[in-house]
């Protein structure tokens, strides 16, 4: 095995290297999951309790108003939970991926491995949280005796989760790379997540927005498609494929841009951390 260490020249994805280090994905994800729930009494239950508590609060406060305005036919708690568990992939994944380079600075400065492993692992952790919450969500479906479009559900569920992960990773790796250079992003990230929560149809259906042009603006949001795809078999609404395509396109753009920006700047992370 012969290789060269030299000033960074061409931009590659480094997939071979990622494969070589594949076990680290497992270890970083496993570490983050373990650490997240270590020394907590409730442990993994927290992954479920957070969206559940939010659902409860929303149902009590805004549930009726949103149901009426959006013409939701299923119980509102189910609607809110379905949105929140997908949204949480993005919210918690983006927050931990965006801060991952800074919070792992001590490791980055001392040892080499493909840096991409860290933000990817952050997204995997939030995927794991999703799986936990999803089990409870299935329980809720049974509890409310809600019938769903099972065929669509089986197709859209993996699609929606995959797109959510891709969007989270794209934006997350972009923010991670920016954050290590400009620490301002530490403050921007929470704000960004909160702002996006309001302009994403998480707890309300998109048809509360009546202006069609406005809907297109909403669809530029990469999280629009995952949420709509996931909810569609449950609320059985009309799915506007144009809007979905806009959003899918946007998540792919974020994914490519984030990935390349990260790869382009990663060799200097250790100097900046």
């Amino acid at each position: 095995m012969e290789y060269e260490i030299k000033p960074k020249s061409k931009l590659t994805l480094g997939l071979n290297e990622l494969w070589h280090y594949r076990e680290l994905f497992y270890f970083f994800t496993w570490r983050d999951i373990k650490v997240k729930y270590k020394q907590t009494v409730l442990g993994f239950a927290w992954a479920v309790l957070q969206p559940l508590a939010m659902t409860l609060l929303l149902s009590i406060s805004l549930g009726k108003i949103i149901s009426n305005a959006g013409g939701i036919t299923i119980p509102y708690p189910l609607f809110a939970m379905s949105g929140l568990i997908i949204w949480n992939i993005f919210a918690s994944g983006l927050s931990s991926a965006g801060n991952s380079m800074v919070s792992n600075a001590n490791i980055i400065k001392k040892i080499y491995f493909p840096r991409l492993i860290i933000p990817i692992s952050s997204v995997l952790v939030s995927f794991f949280d999703f799986l936990m919450a999803f089990v409870v969500f299935i329980g809720m479906l049974i509890y409310y005796h809600t019938s769903i479009l099972i065929g669509e559900f089986l197709i859209f569920l993996p699609m929606s989760v995959l797109v959510a992960c891709i969007a989270t990773f794209g934006l997350g790796s972009l923010l991670a790379a920016l954050n290590i250079k400009y620490r301002d992003f530490r403050y921007i990230i929470p704000f960004l997540i909160q702002a996006m929560f309001f302009i994403t149809p998480v707890i309300y259906p998109i048809n509360v927005i009546s202006n069609p042009l406005m809907r297109y603006l909403f669809a530029i949001n990469p999280m629009y498609a995952p949420l709509e795809l996931f909810k569609h078999p449950i609320i059985k609404n009309h799915l506007d494929m144009n809007l979905i395509m806009v959003s899918l396109f946007s998540s792919i753009v974020f994914f490519i841009f984030g990935l390349f920006y990260f790869r382009k700047t990663e060799s200097y992370f250790a100097d900046l951390a």
Partner: peptide, 20 residues
């Protein structure tokens, strides 16, 4: 050592390595 460990790239020059 950091350059040898690939943690940070050199500004110029190169290292040829024939081992892990």
């Amino acid at each position: 050592l950091k350059i040898l460990s690939k943690i940070t790239p050199p500004s110029s020059g190169r290292i040829i390595s024939r081992g892990r």
